[in-house]
Amino acid sequence: MSAPMVHAEKVHKSFGKVEVLKGIDLTVELGEVCCLLGPSGSGKSTFLRCINHLEKVDAGRLSVDGELVGYRQSGEKLYELKEKETSSKRAEIGMVFQRFNLFPHMTALGNIVEAPIRVKGLGKAEAAERARALLDRVGLSDKVDAYPAQLSGGQQQRVAIARALAMQPKLMLFDEPTSALDPELVGEVLDVMRGLAADGMTMLVVTHEMGFARDVGDTVVFMDGGVVVESGAPHDVINNPQQERTRAFLGKVL
């Protein structure tokens, strides 16, 4: 049996004196969609950022695809990864942000081909061809030459998903991908994510979309105050929560 895609054991993270993650335990298997729920400030974003080496873990063990995040183990000793090693690990993980973060000075196509060409060394023609296929997949084949400012929020987020997919990641992280969108645009982004899940992509999704978590999630994890309060199958956690804190939170969002 292969190693889980994401494996966290007692992960701690502090910013100065404030402890944000207080021992997270979580596992995402290959091909699984895991939805992360929790109130604002519970540390969801911080945890995703740790997985993608954007923050350093202070204590505990965090591994992606069987390899430790941020460190290299040699015997009993841990060595911090060099910038180059960190970058190459990040290249294998796709990340989608709440505020899209498209590069405003590049067209949709330019946004997508940038990393494959400059980071992976892919040929320009091949990268462009793949990018067009990806834009087609997210339903934006007519927006190849549009700049981000000319796209709606939903379209921007779909380009951002295509941009992450262009690196052919083994894991996709989504940090509230629909919470900056007008309600009528949420659906088009969720549809793209549904398609991804159906294609077998391993996904860790921070979301407040209970419908999505219920339909698409293989597991749902509820976080509060820097710890995992409850996790399990979507049906169990959402419809029949065991913990008082989960019940209180779901009562507010449902």
Partner: peptide, 22 residues
């Protein structure tokens, strides 16, 4: 915007590359 640096880093760009291109 800091999000630009983050997005570029998440794509595996090195510091020099993301400074120059993004």
């Amino acid at each position: 915007d800091e999000g630009q640096t983050e997005a570029a880093q998440a794509l595996g760009m090195s510091r020099g590359l993301l400074l120059r291109r993004i």
